[in-house]
Amino acid sequence: MADRILAGHGSGGKLMNEMIGGLIRRILGMESVQLDDSAVLHTETGKIAFTTDTFTITPIEFPGGTIGSLAVNGTVNDLAVMGAKPLYLSCALILEEGLETAVLERILVSMRSAADAAGVSIVTGDTKVVERGKADKIFINTAGIGILEGMVQRRPIMPGDAVLINGFIGDHGIVIMALRNRLSFSRGLISDCAPMNGLIGSVIAAFPESVKFMRDPTRGGVASVLNEIVKGADFGIGLAETALPVRDEVRGVSGMLGIDPLYAANEGKVLMVVRGEDADGIVEIMRSLPEGRDAAVIGRVSGDYPGRAYLETRTGGRRILPLLIEEQLPRIC
């Protein structure tokens, strides 16, 4: 590992994985620290899922959400992708001295409405105020608890399985990149920030045995999730470029700044690996819901290129989708 923590250690890519494996879990407990989106804990009355996430973002308010709604939905989604029903959240605030109270109020209002929309309650919290310059306006940590009524939605993945997503790729990450680089949108583009527990619940209710894996492709985007799935596996995953739901605006910003939407963060998306024969049925269910209107099958699990995520491009050529190494910076090369 590097001598010092670099920005790239926080970007959801290879550097972060090294830090988690080589430092954090090694010391805190290889066995006890679970790597999945939530830890699954067995109690006498059943299974619960438990997770925590800390949110830092610039800007703290953006089209489609705030750091507050992000903090609620992010934790709700980490529980939901395990197949758990999210119930309770905590909220810890780290506030920078000088933050405007009106801003904090807006953020709290957006947290509350996100919690209401997701059907969860915020039941405990903590606040700290740090000296000016020691934090960037506001950092939020949320922890969440959900109950697992049925099975954990993790089953062996095999060739023939389908990969699907509930809508357009990269909206959140691209909105943020655009704001930071003084780009605007003529027709408006907003973050996709939304809770996924309703949609996931509907899918599992109709297809209780079909989902092999789910994850919310946040930091690091769709390509990073695919890389986690195929790591060390005897199968590969191929996406079809022509099948990817990507908005024009997302394509536009990506082209301008030299970034790839497959690596841009999503905050209201779930990527599913499902039994191939159920893919169309699941997409149909998703499309009947507002948060899944643009759902699509985007790829397949195959026996080709084991351990690799790859893209079949418009030309019919194939290229690998590597694990993102560091954060994406706007570039001109």
């Binding site: 670099l6 920005a7 560091e326 570039r331």
Partner: peptide
Amino acid sequence: TFGDMVKVPSSYSSLAAEKAQ
């Protein structure tokens, strides 16, 4: 700088490593 230069190694360091310091 353009983002392109940030991670490029120099003889002894890089802008990314210097930023961390």
